[in-house]
């Protein structure tokens, strides 16, 4: 299985998915007009990974901004991770937010309430 790497742009985040290490990183801004198209390669890759995941999977979400169109796609990513977890991979989502960014912390808590995976909220100093 090949790893996935997508470079960030002003409107889309950097995505690094290392399948051998079971590590996924999404970092930057996610405000594309067409989010479904942008997230499709990642959703496909997760689908591929679901069948033979590593014993543990660590996901780091470090977003500065995301639009509501991305929020649905991020939920789709998390739903795939739920499947990966139920296939036996010890999965954790680390949700990063900047100090004082209550909105981003709340956004993480919104997902935490919906998704059946342990979340770790990580505050970053500015």
């Amino acid at each position: 299985m090949e790893n996935l790497k997508i470079d960030g742009t002003p409107k889309t985040p950097t995505i690094v998915f290392n399948l051998e290490e079971g590590k996924l990183l999404i970092r930057g801004r996610s405000i594309p007009e067409n989010s479904i198209e942008f997230y499709k390669p990642l959703v496909d890759k997760l689908e591929e990974y679901t069948n033979s995941p590593q014993s543990s999977t660590e996901v780091k979400i470090q977003l500065e901004y995301f639009n509501t169109s991305s929020s649905k796609c991020i939920l789709d990513v998390f739903k795939k991770l739920e499947k990966i977890k139920s296939n036996g991979s010890d999965t954790v989502i680390k949700w990063y937010y900047e100090e004082d960014d209550e909105d981003m912390l709340e956004a993480g808590e919104d997902y935490q309430a919906i998704i059946n995976i342990p979340f770790k909220m990580v505050e970053m100093e500015e």
């Binding site: 509501t68 169109s69 649905k72």
Partner: peptide, 21 residues
Amino acid sequence: KEVLNNGIMSDKGGGGLGMID
């Protein structure tokens, strides 16, 4: 959260979340 979890997404990824946000 309700709309995020149950809402139907349009082709472009919207889904009535924008105004709430």
